[in-house]
Design a protein around this nucleic acid. Structure first.
Lengths: 242, 242
DNA sequence: CGAAACGTTGATATCCTTCAACATGAGTGG
DNA sequence: CCACTCATGTTGAAGGATATCAACGTTTCG
């Protein structure tokens, strides 16, 4: 199990922008525990007061909102290197839930200490804000899907988006990567019914856009899928530009 | 025209959390220009490189994305006290546009100086991150509308949301406030067609939920409208909790 | 083996979109 | 002052995309 931030394999693979040894030490100092939770675990519950902040070290999770009658909207997916609970920690109560999609390893960063870090390590404060802005960008894209893309476009755009993120993290092998979402997750992320999601996935599969086997997905041609999904992002660079 | 941050009428009306005289001085030092733009002006264009950051001093604006074929999704509305262009300034190019909904007054905060401020005034760095998190919360809510609410619920939720924000800003008189959106804006924010938006608005109006006159909207009963819209927020406090 | 979660498929219903036409009001130039 | 245009709002009819309902298949796992 991961212990010291100095040995962090995430950092080694270039997920984070380089930071100074001082900054890394400061992060290492405030990191409290290394938590492991199983798939399906609730990491943050809507309404939680004073939730903590975590770095997702391994595994996938998702952020979501529920309407009073139980309808669920997934807001965005979280992958290694993402910060969990930042928005929630800023307010007096979490406005959303976060649930683990796979087994996850989390690095606990007590909120008070993160705020304290703002004063001591301004570079890290910037990085925290940057991670928040990147997450907002993902939500923006998902809102554009739910609001203005057809079912086929939504599914295609979602798969490409996840593919690109997985690729950056080095999780893509050939053109395959582990895909832990059920069709219900896809439906709740895209604002579609389960049945229609199933039929849309089947259509794209029959078109040869992707294939699935033992929990993995293989994307035949990311560019074609991006065109179908009307999805064109400008590669967000890892290193914030100051 | 507004000149000094020390005289800022926004600050006087309690929109911002109190900051120290030092912090205020620092903000005042980096503030460059006071810009006035007419309704419809593009404040930030998607693809802009190195856009600046602004505080919206007066007026309304909105943030949006376009698909290649022109379909438009409005991501969130911006009201006085909001920070414009923060997300865009963090990356190498803006992933969205920002357009003025009414005539707007903007306070220009050069991005480089804002980043410099992170080092000198950690309290302000926190506030910037907090404003970003609040905006993300608005996008979350809009995504939940587009993905999981019916047309009637979406319209109701949008009106209540804007009502509550306007109320906090002191823009609500009785239960009326200036409402500069066209039905096309409402449609693009909610992911509905213009025609269906019109009919849904008409239905809610006939139900007596609200009325309109010379650019203003009057909400009959915010609580009823919130119930129709399945919209229940916990009042986000002005002052961040550290 | 049985149960539970997940996936698939067809039939039917409905919400929302699209198309088309017209109404209203503001601004503009003759 | 009128004619004109353009943006915006309104309404009805028809079509289509997506939801809902129902049933069954498949996989996983205790």
């Amino acid at each position: 199990m991961q212990v010291s931030c100095f040995d962090c394999t995430l950092r080694a693979c270039g997920v984070f922008k380089p930071i100074t040894r001082n900054e890394l030490g400061a992060v290492n100092d405030i990191k409290r525990e290394h938590v492991v939770l199983p798939a399906g675990a609730e990491i943050i519950r809507a309404g939680d007061e004073a939730p903590e902040i975590y770095t997702l070290y391994s595994g996938w999770a998702f952020r979501f909102k529920n309407l009073p009658d139980g309808r669920r909207q997934i807001l965005n997916f979280l992958m290694p290197g993402d910060l969990l609970g930042l928005q929630a920690a800023m307010f007096d109560a979490a406005q959303h839930g976060i649930e683990a999609l796979t087994e996850v390893q989390l690095c606990l960063l007590p909120r008070r200490k993160v705020w304290a870090l703002f004063g001591e390590m301004p570079g890290l404060a910037f990085d925290v804000a940057w991670l928040g802005a990147r997450e907002e960008g993902h939500v923006d894209e998902n809102l554009t899907s739910a609001g203005r893309r057809s079912a086929t476009e939504r599914v295609a755009a979602l798969i490409v988006m996840l593919y690109k993120r997985a690729k950056i993290l080095g999780l893509v092998d050939g053109d395959s990567f582990a895909f832990p979402l059920t069709q219900q997750h896809v439906a709740d992320a895209l604002g579609l019914s389960l049945v229609h999601t199933n039929k849309t996935l089947a259509r794209l599969r029959r078109m040869g856009m992707f294939s699935r086997a033992n929990g993995s997905i293989t994307v035949t041609d990311p560019h074609v899928l991006a065109r179908i999904g009307q999805y064109f992002d400008e590669e967000i660079p890892m290193r914030p530009l100051i």
